[in-house]
Design a protein around this nucleic acid. Structure first.
Lengths: 168, 168
DNA sequence: ATAAATTTTCAATATTATTTGAAAGTTCGG
DNA sequence: CCGAACTTTCAAATAATATTGAAAATTTAT
């Protein structure tokens, strides 16, 4: 397989993978393109490589910068902006975990707290089932939140070694 | 807040949460509805509660059964099928992890292996950058796969306690 | 075997998410 | 300041995804 073909294949695959995880396909593809590029790319380079419009390129690059996965670079003598991706996958993973924790776990807690103040006959079967379900989710979400927090602060080896060590 | 209102709110929130994670909104809502229901529900119950068509109900319930998150129940004297959700959230989490690992990690490995057999001038900057990126992802994916495998086999307390213990 | 009850399928339709592209906005060298 | 180079915005167009509903298939009781 030729390099160009391999890049293309990887970019496609990364796009599909991303869209399974609520990340838009193009955003994941831009990320993949930057991941496998030796040098920083300009908006034009990205447009051309992925066959997408200028607006689309801009939107997705901005989003990636928001997520902390892509950085602007300035090239001396060039007026336009260039972009590079964070290449350490563990950093990428942590960064995504951090963002999603903030964006998604917080709203879940908000709703769980709201609905746990439900009023009525505490003894009814319906009420008991509801409260138990909500409590179970709340409990789990709290633990997951704590775990994620530690994960975000941890380094890669610490994390993976933890499992090996504890299995003994 | 009344029970019905609380249920409604929770179902909405769970649907939104799910759709951020590549799970279709209705599927997540059906799951939420079954999670907070005291008794098993029939297709008709679900249709009515969520205001969705029979076909849609059927599709999403089947998908949930495929994922191992919902089970059929037979009620004596009733001809139709009833459904209940797995209520242990840790089980739910493990089940989802298991399915996604199988459905998504495997294709990623397939592509990574394919593209790592790229041919050409091994010394070129472009080629080196590509190989390094792919290798980095491959390495990370392998570790993640191993970790997930252990996670799937582990019990809840073991998992959460591991973090607390190791932080000391 | 029959028919009523129930589930499943799937083409048509509706909804939602993404993309485009041109206009407006910004930045910067001279 | 001016205008060329570049970036951003966003309404409209397009594409992707989910939903409906009625017909077909299946199941079950008699």
């Amino acid at each position: 397989m030729k390099l160009e073909e391999a890049k293309e294949k990887f970019i496609q695959a990364w796009g599909t993978f991303g869209s399974n995880w609520g990340i838009n396909r193009t955003m994941a593809q831009v990320h993949a393109l930057l991941l496998v590029s030796a040098d920083p790319l300009s908006a034009e380079d990205i447009m051309e490589a992925l066959n997408i419009s200028r607006g689309n390129t801009n939107m997705n690059v901005r989003a990636l910068i928001d997520w902390g996965l892509v950085f602007k670079e300035f090239q001396s003598g060039e007026r336009k902006e260039f972009f590079t991706a964070e290449k350490d996958i563990w950093q990428v993973f942590k960064q995504i975990a951090k963002e999603r924790r903030k964006r998604e776990l917080e709203p879940v807690f908000k709703v769980l707290n709201e609905v746990s103040r439900v009023e009525g006959d505490t003894e009814s079967k319906e009420m008991k089932a509801f409260n138990e379900a909500i409590q179970g989710i709340h409990n789990f979400a709290s633990k997951a939140d704590g775990t994620l927090d530690k994960l975000i602060k941890a380094d890669e080896n610490w994390f993976f070694n933890a499992f090996i060590k504890l299995m003994k």
